[in-house]
Design a protein around this nucleic acid. Sequence first.
RNA 1: UACCCGGUAGUGUAACGGUAGCACAACAGGUUUUGGUCCUGUUGGUCGAGGUUCGAAUCCUCGCCGGGUAACCA
Length: 608
Amino acid sequence: MTTPETKPTLNFVQEIVEADNAARRWGTWPDGRPRVHTRFPPEPNGYLHIGHAKSIWLNYGLAEQYGGRFNLRFDDTNPVAEEQEYVESIVRDVRWLGVKWVGMRDVTGGARASGADAESGVIFSSDYFQQMHDWAVELIKKGRAYVCDLTSEETSTYRGTLTKPGTNSPHRDRSVEENLDLFERMRKGEFPDGSRTLRAKIDMASPNLNLRDPVMYRILHAAHHRTGGAWCIYPMYDWAHGLEDSIEGITHSICTLEFENHRPLYDWFIDAINEGRTEDGSGPWGRTIHHPQQIEFARLSVTHMLMSKRKLLELVKGGHVRSWDDPRMPTLSGLRRRGYTPEAVRNFCADVGVAKFNGTIEIVRLENAIREHLNRIAPRRMAVLRPLKLVITNFPEGSVEQLDAVNNPEDPSAGTRKVPFGRELYIERDDFREEPPKGYHRLYPGNEVRLRYAYFVKCTGVVKDMATGEVREVHCTYDPATRGGDSPDGRKVKGTIHWVSAGHAVDAEVRLYDHLFSAPFPEDVPEGGSYLANLNANSLEVLSGCKLEPSLAEAKFGHDAFGTIMPDRVQFERHGYFCVDMDAGPGRPVFNRTVSLKDSWAKVEKKG
RNA sequence: UACCCGGUAGUGUAACGGUAGCACAACAGGUUUUGGUCCUGUUGGUCGAGGUUCGAAUCCUCGCCGGGUAACCA
């Protein structure tokens, strides 16, 4: 073979995985392929956003491309923050992205799925509470953990600071027997919230604060969304997470950069459990447990957006947006309602790449991704958003023609449709000027333009409101020889504008969106300021009385088997991509603008 | 002023000791029945100083700058 080796460039995580695979570091699947097993471990305390999509794409993508497996696991170790509502929304969003997790049930053929179907295969960390508890007892017996009676304030004081070492807890040297007894009584509920903790005995002088005897269990007499009242002690993230990964046989435990300092602890806990264990189970504590590799990557940041769950919640609660799925939100439910496709979101994630540098992606990259996909798949339609009446004075009164319009120039298989044409039309207000600026190619007195897929028309005059001077109607004549938009005499026009027949137009509401935050870095605020000051007052513009070509009356939004909305998406020619909003109903069309088309004329005009 | 991690065109990401490339953005032109798409071209970069080497974005040292870390959150 003389074919040049096409070496796909790998991101640093893929490089690690490939090196591991080459060394068979994690063994093999029954089919002989090297084992790769990833997971996405959200806490069910908020809605997923575009940043989570990057993590899901990374984790699932790895499993997919290396023939591995992927788990969807809820990290539900804190009963006070977590709710079933979030579980449902997260499952829906992960499914929407096109991910297949181990044990996932697919429902097709128009069947209606149940809640159990939706969550089949989904894992909950809380299912491992008993195992985690047993391992904690083991660490106590090994002298690696102790019950501490310090209050949270005292614990914090004893921990020291970034520059000063901590001090040992006075309870650090309790006997194994006493620790066992106390921990058992913690579990049985004998002590009030916050009165005691189980801590790992590591090193109060470590420069890594995570290693200064971290808390493994806290007492919380709170009902858990899954386990109810079964437990009143709950494991902390650092203790729980590696164990969850271990139990599931996760090979690469991928998380974001801020967990880099936690990796030594992740490793310490598993090593502590493995102390006294052997591969063949001959050790005093039995068989070694699996020890995954934690890998950290840079989380996604996008200009004009916010990813903080807390702030997103504030936007919803504070009424700055309508809901979690407000089309201006960076949530996956918001993007979906806005008209984004899972393909575009995935392409965007692939496009921005994976590295350890904490940067910020320009939002145009996201907009570019959805334009690129919708350009290929969205049917074209004509819609007049800000209507102005156009009267063709030499067109026979009462006559209607059906003209052929191409559905998608990028996709010949999409075919054509008929669009009705008559003497009175609507055109865009912006497509007519009494006094055209330099370089203006659209309609103005004396100028000839093409009505897309229809005829050449020449502007002959205007009708104005006597009182206000506002243009009420534009009058023109048409050239019957140019039917379809071609001139037999070879005469050219500079402009082509869209139109809708006044007698056939469908009235609609159209919602135009702009960045939720006008500042590229909304969180950059002066001392004492709030990111809320960076909200864009014009992020939503609602237009009513828009005129749509009649075929658009049939546009609707549907649902998949799990109830997730699947809106129809179209391009309004010369405007942008739009989708049907879930507020639409029979006889009440409502469209969201997903993203506008690029507009080089607007750029020119702005410059003057 | 402790520890950890980073720093390549405006933005993001490649180059793994051997020609600094790609995408988006910007700019210029071409095609066009969407001022869209598509095509062509242009501008523009290795944080700094030393060192190792025939050769350094890459390895070493020292600076500089940025991020993370002191929840009984994850």
